[in-house]
Amino acid sequence: MDTRLAGKLRPRSRIAETAAATRLVLRRNDSVAVAGLVLVGYLTAFLWAVGDLSVRPDMPAGLLIVDDPLWRVFDRTGPATFEAIAIVDTGVARLLFSPGNLLLGGFVAGLVGLNLAMSYLAVVQPAACGLGTGSGLLASMPALLAGTVCCGPVVLLVLGIQASGLLLTMFTWLLPLGIGLLFVSLIYVAGKIDVSGSAHG
């Protein structure tokens, strides 16, 4: 890496800042609550968007497991979606239990939760004055990118957009792009937090 560029980006320092900010998020009850709420909310929306979660009060409570579930865990149903191996009916909601979708959704939801929890800390414990809530919005765009890709081109039907070859190619890159941007946003927001501040109880 170019020395001047490296000096400007300060990669080691950025990683250390992000790690410290992450630890701070996990130490404080309020930021953990923000991260947890966002994680659960995003994961719920993610599972609903991929069709794994639905409201089905008409179905009695029950559990159905497909045959050879372990062999089918990694069967893909789309570029970034995986086969469900069980149906869980609670009497209110139906969950298609897909470990792959749950892991992927949980990972993205965790990143979004961490981003927004750091944005919260950047507001309540800023390293410098003048930081607004814009950093939280910064995290929401890649979160949307990472989330919509899992629905595949069918989301275009909802939006009323006709698919083209270019658009479909873009779809395959939205998830890695979204995850990458979430990391960039995380590093950016981490630098805006005063990690030396006292932890809340």
Binding site: G51, R56, D58, A84, A86, F97, L156, L157, G160
Partner: peptide, 25 residues
């Protein structure tokens, strides 16, 4: 394991969603 009883595109009984609008993918 599929969510039988829900249709990702719409409904036929009565017609709605993709089956009843002018949109194509």
């Amino acid at each position: 394991a599929r969510d039988y009883g829900s249709d990702p595109y719409g409904e036929y009984n009565p017609p709605s969603g993709y089956y009843d609008n002018e949109r194509t993918l």
